[in-house]
Design a protein around this nucleic acid. Structure first.
Length: 504
RNA sequence: GACCCGGUAGCUCAGUCGGUAGAGCAUGCGGCUUUUAACCGCCAGGUCGUGGGUUCGAUCCCCACCCGGGUCACCA
């Protein structure tokens, strides 16, 4: 295997030697471009011969014909055909052309013209090698059938595509477009929040206490302070401290870290958006979420449409995202799914039996709210397809949310579900430090009893709240999952440039 | 963690009902001055995931392990 690879690599190294013998530097310092590939077609227009252009990019197709060679040059804008002819290039230029490989980065200069088959092409008069490719990229062959690009024998191994994202991107323009769409989505969301007067901030990734969610943390150690530090599992508690400080509307987009399993919807580090707005309650935040979803979908659709990647994903169907989204109350929807008048009237034994029936383990050690949550996830959440707000969760499941007006056993909390997955989680944020301390202490008891995901008491956060925390609404949105939903992507690793993987 | 599927040439895959393997593309050489999955000819390239077992003989059968994918479980 390695022998053969060496054989392939050897051939490219030999070309380096041949280039050196001709005094050609294989790795350049720069190149002045006049245009991008996609500009060539409009630039030539209906003419047969056109202006001289200077383009740079990667050789993505190469067809040698003796004393002429056809190739395609790819750059971020697209691709354009190149025509090399010995007579035009001269002895030295042709010698270099002869040593080109698929994957080389080159710069060319020459006039545009139209070939016999009508394709807009650069007649290369000057050729510069900008970076010799010493390792073959796994290009597939492409043909166009009925206007659609069909790729043969390409780079298909999902694991290798994730590991070598640089190669995946280099040979798959549609993957580049997908990640451009992801960045545009973030940009659009920032614009949306900025436009509402939100301030983007940066809070600590390394935290002496972790909180704001239920998850196992990554633990590290600071040498100089000789103390443990945790990678954050959520931004929540720091952002709300800032609202105490007088920043009425704040948000952060950053990575959270959870030391749990990896599967198609979980990566140990993932991108979280959290935003907090003083004097708003959770109903106001629902409207924010609806508008944000439309903003994000529009940005994604614009990029993918321009790249010719129109799909049937939600981003392309405004009707799916047209608000207001459906509302569903937690307790009544669970009662309805279980075909009982009132789930809270069921005995502990009946709840445990129902949970056991759907395969929940260790039902004996779970509290009533936890049992109901299991039932809810199985019977309700997983069946929600169109975007739907589930509202008013039990208090025990929501230690940072305010009690619901009129029913203190519930909290003013909503989660947004779509296609069976959680997209957002939000509350009317608890701002009563006395109540918050009791909730923390209840969590601490769970933690002491062995619940690894329960939080402890965060005294500094309580101190901040005691200074007076304005009422506020807060929302957390998993950006990876939002983007997966909008693009119809099945695996989180396909929306993360460098997903966490076992070392090779 | 359980179960199912897979790991063969650089890439995409086929195959051997057990006798140490093939194709296309890519690479190398030769030919070709408007091609586009270019084409034509030739050459080379693999200890068939790892370790053990059965066997005269294993890439194929058995066991274990490693890696990947899927389903389920877990995951406020």
């Amino acid at each position: 295997m390695s022998d053969d690879l060496n054989h392939v690599l050897r051939a490219r190294r030999d070309k380096l030697d041949a280039l050196a013998a001709r005094g050609i530097a294989p790795f350049a310092y720069g190149f002045d471009r006049s245009h991008h590939a996609a500009e060539c077609v409009p630039l030539l227009g209906d003419a047969e011969e056109g202006a001289v252009v200077r383009l740079a990019g990667r050789l993505v197709a190469l067809r040698a014909h003796g004393k002429t060679t056809f190739a395609h040059l790819g750059d971020p804008s697209g691709r354009v055909q190149l025509y090399f002819k010995k007579d035009v290039l001269g002895e030295d230029g042709w010698a270099l052309c002869d040593l080109l490989d698929l994957g080389d980065v080159i710069g060319v200069q020459g006039p545009l013209f139209r070939t016999r088959t009508g394709e807009v092409t650069v007649r290369v008069e000057q050729l510069e090698l900008l970076a010799k490719s010493l390792r073959p990229l796994p290009f597939g062959k492409e043909e166009t059938v009925d206007g659609k690009v069909v790729r043969h024998s390409g780079f298909a191994d999902g694991e290798q595509r994730s590991r070598q994202r640089y190669a995946d991107l280099a040979v798959h323009p549609e993957v580049r477009a997908l990640f451009v769409a992801r960045t545009r989505m973030n940009t659009a969301v920032r614009g949306f929040l900025d436009g509402l007067g939100y301030l983007e901030v940066e809070t600590p990734v390394l935290q002496p206490l972790y909180g704001g969610a239920a998850a196992k943390p990554f633990v590290t150690h600071h040498n100089a302070l000789d103390m443990p530090l945790f990678l954050r599992i959520a931004d929540e508690l720091y952002l709300k401290r800032l609202v105490v400080g007088g920043f009425d509307r704040v948000y952060e987009i950053g990575h959270d870290f959870r030391n749990e399993g990896i599967d198609r919807t979980h990566n140990p580090e993932f991108t979280m958006l959290e935003f907090y707005e003083a004097y708003a309650d959770y109903t106001a935040m629902m409207a924010r979420v609806e508008a944000l979803m439309i903003t994000a979908a529009t940005a994604v659709r614009d990029v993918l449409s321009a790249a010719g990647l129109a799909t049937d994903a939600p981003a392309f169907d405004p009707a799916v995202l047209q608000g207001p989204f459906a509302r569903m109350e937690w307790l009544p929807s669970l009662s309805s799914a279980l075909h009982v008048p009132d789930v809270t009237a069921l005995s502990d034994a009946e709840l445990r039996a129902a949970a056991e029936k759907i395969g929940v383990h260790g039902v004996g050690s779970l509290s009533r709210p936890k049992l109901m949550d299991e039932l809810f996830q199985f019977h309700v959440e997983s069946k929600i397809d169109r975007p739907t707000f589930v509202v008013d969760y039990p208090k025990e499941l929501s230690p940072l949310a305010k009690p619901k007006r009129g029913n203190p056993e519930l909290t003013e909390r909503f989660e947004l579900f779509a296609r069976g997955k959680e997209m957002a989680n939000a509350f009317s944020e608890l701002n009563d430090p006395i109540d918050q301390r009791q909730r923390f202490e209840a969590q601490a008891r769970l933690k002491a009893a062995g619940d690894e995901e329960a939080s402890g008491v965060d005294e500094d956060y309580l101190r901040a709240m005691e200074y007076g925390m304005p009422p506020m609404g807060g929302v957390g949105i998993g950006m990876d999952r939002l983007f997966m939903y909008l693009t119809g992507t099945a695996h989180i690793r396909d929306v993360i440039l460098f997903p966490t993987m076992r070392p090779e």
